Simulated assay, not measured.
Amino acid sequence: TNFDPYSEDLTSYESGEMTMTGELVGPRWLKSGQVVHGVKGRTAGVYHPLASLDDARNVLKRRKALGPSILKSYKLSTRAQRQRLLQAAREYDFMVDGEGAGQFYTNIGMILDGHTNLEHNLPVATYYDDLQQLIAASDVSMTPTLIVTFGELFGENYIYENEDSWSQDKVKAFIPDVNNAYNPITGDSGTPLHVRCMHSIHVSDEIYDIGFRSVGRSLTKLAKAGATVNVGSHGQVSGLAMYWEMLLFAESGMEPMEILRAATINGAKTYGLDHQLGSITPGKLADLIVLDEDPTEDIRNANSVRYTMVNGRLYDSHTMNEIGNYDRPRSKFYWEMKPTNGIDWKSTWSGE
């Protein structure tokens, strides 16, 4: 299951429904639709001033008609605006994800006021005891995205510095480009993964120790205390960044089984779907991932996916062909249908 907290309304609902009917091949898609944004200059109709409670109720009426059950609160400039949105959300049975956008005290207000989940880490390296107690008592879920760490160098820079993901067969076959917008080195917003690797920065390991690892250690302590901590990829590399986030948690000292919980049942619990998803239990929906290696021994084995089942439909992860009850070769991806003038770029840079 993929949760997208910043998507286009109608496009995402349409795509999610087509995936469930089998018209499109992809993960189960949970989405928030358009964000509720507080910056006036923001385009695409996401700006909502929320000058009154009725303003917030109007937002919820429209979203209720569209059918989701989650909103994302993003850069609402005052606590009063956020409280109006939360009150309206309670009236319409919606959850509200909050992004503090790197502002510590905005995050604190979000915790106090009752947001369902906090996206990104609070922009401090260490969560001291008072903050730990507040988070635990509030029952808010945390999706820290160590891969995009507020307040320090992103964890994804550590990955590009230390991993050679661009050489993997699945990456070559299924990942045409990655999110390059957060690269410290200025470049195009999207590039092939091997290009992003070549344009990475290298820093001493101590920088990462006071950055993403320190945040990860705080979240590991929270998880041991019973807080709900989720693995989240920020969409940096579709299909691979979740695995990267799991590696970053491991670098921070979290045990493999706890990382697996953060990547599965915790997310289902956060969004009220743990009665249907998140664990292999009789009566739950038939969403499974089959691995060749044991991730409880080494979290890197989570990257040994052989088969994926979505809603009872089984796919070979090396080909993306549907197998099992059906024999359905996949159609071409959108990037495979673009003219290349006879040039096979993949073989050029991979040395094949």
Rank of each mutant, 00 (worst) to 15 (best):
I289F: 01
H120C: 05
L291G: 10
N180E: 12
L30W: 06
G187E: 10
G38F: 00
E23H: 04
L288F: 15
A80T: 14
A268H: 07
N157Q: 15
G33E: 10
A262Q: 00
V171Q: 06
I259R: 05
D294H: 10
T340E: 15
P339D: 05
V96N: 01
V178S: 06
P123D: 05
K221Q: 14
I111H: 08
L53Q: 13
G278F: 04
K75R: 13
L131Q: 02
N325V: 05
S77I: 03
T228W: 02
L247P: 00
Q133Y: 11
L60Y: 09
I280P: 05
V35T: 13
L291P: 14
G342A: 00
P68H: 10
E251S: 08
D294Q: 05
V25N: 11
E161N: 14
I289E: 02
D209P: 00
S7V: 03
G38E: 07
P68R: 00
Y13L: 15
L146I: 12
E251L: 04
P339G: 00
G98P: 01
V229Y: 01
N301M: 07
T11N: 12
R306F: 04
I135W: 06
G342N: 02
V140C: 11
V39S: 09
V59T: 08
H120Y: 09
L193D: 03
Q133F: 10
G67C: 08
S15V: 15
D169V: 11
P144M: 06
G22D: 06
S317E: 13
A286F: 12
V229K: 05
H318I: 00
Y127K: 05
I210A: 11
S347Y: 01
S238V: 05
K40D: 07
L240R: 09
D164Q: 15
G114C: 07
G324Q: 01
P49I: 08
Y160G: 03
S233P: 00
H234L: 06
D54W: 08
R300V: 13
P192I: 01
G155Y: 09
I210N: 10
T220P: 08
T186W: 09
E91F: 09
G351T: 03
N183P: 11
A286N: 12
S204T: 10
N162G: 03
K172M: 13
G26K: 10
G226K: 01
L260N: 01
